[in-house]
Amino acid sequence: MTQPVLSVRNLTVEFPTRRGILTAVQDITFDIMPGEVLGVVGESGAGKSMTGAAIIGLIDPPGRIAKGEIWLGDQRIDNLAPDRMRKIRGRRIGMIFQDPLTSLNPLYRISRQLIETIRTHLPLSQADARKRAIKLLDDVGIPDAARRIDDYPHQFSGGMRQRVVIALALCADPEVVIADEPTTALDVSVQAQIIDVMKEICAERGAAIMLVTHDMGVIAETADRVAVMYAGRLAEIGPVASVIKNAKHPYSQGLMGAIPKLGENLDRLVHIPGSMPRLNAIPQGCAFNPRCPQVFDKCRTHRPAASEIEPGRRAACWLYPEVTEA
């Protein structure tokens, strides 16, 4: 059996505040295999971006990893000193953020930003780094890369800018890329292009991707497995086709039914009453229990752990007898 490239074990992220400790991510465990795309979905405040930030060591203080371990291959990275983490970030873990305009420096040419990143991580000469940068731009589908490399970010359109950001993330051939809402700021037709680029790149280079998004459509197109998050916890994780077609957790079932679809015209969408609890008011027991249509007594008092209910599938719901208490 191959070793996972990234392994997150019982990760808990807390924010101490004057009014007590807020738990943004609670007890999350998952693995990503080499070359795999793991989608992480959830609504705003579900803790999906925070999980990504914890992996790359960029949680804003006073937030902290309170519990758990993060392993990159056979190296533990959650407790590394900042300067050692910096050598991993960008080298072994690439990052793609939502808004390409804010992840590029508007005052520097693309070439400078790419070459700087490449030379920070790889022992290449200026000329070789430039060659590599052009090759990367070409790979992510920027036409006439050799000429456009000397343009400034504002000279690119939104979709092209996001391609540059993808190239930037791939500079040092990372083993894992954390992509946080990479297509959210883009129009549908451009989104489709970016999804294609990410899929191709991942397949060619064997890099694993953790794709954080609120858009189930993007997950369906891109991911191999999907993790559904709710109120900082893992509700369900499994192969993408089986989670989408046969969701186990009532939250993921509701979420799937709430999405309008092109192929069918239902009169009404599935209605999950209420909204996600705030971090300071996460209910006792299962976090979803006040909104759950199948709630029973145990849900209100005992917190279910994401436990294996079928080979390769875990869910945190008391409806399944295999589920244990957290």
Binding site: V188, S189, Q191, A192, I195, D215, M216, G217, V218, A220, E221, V240, A241, I244, K245, I259, K261, L262, G263
Partner: peptide, 13 residues
């Protein structure tokens, strides 16, 4: 046609 084609295939058809 292009726009409809670009919509992610959530039903996984």
């Amino acid at each position: 046609r292009m726009l409809l084609d670009a919509v992610p295939d959530i039903e996984m058809t």
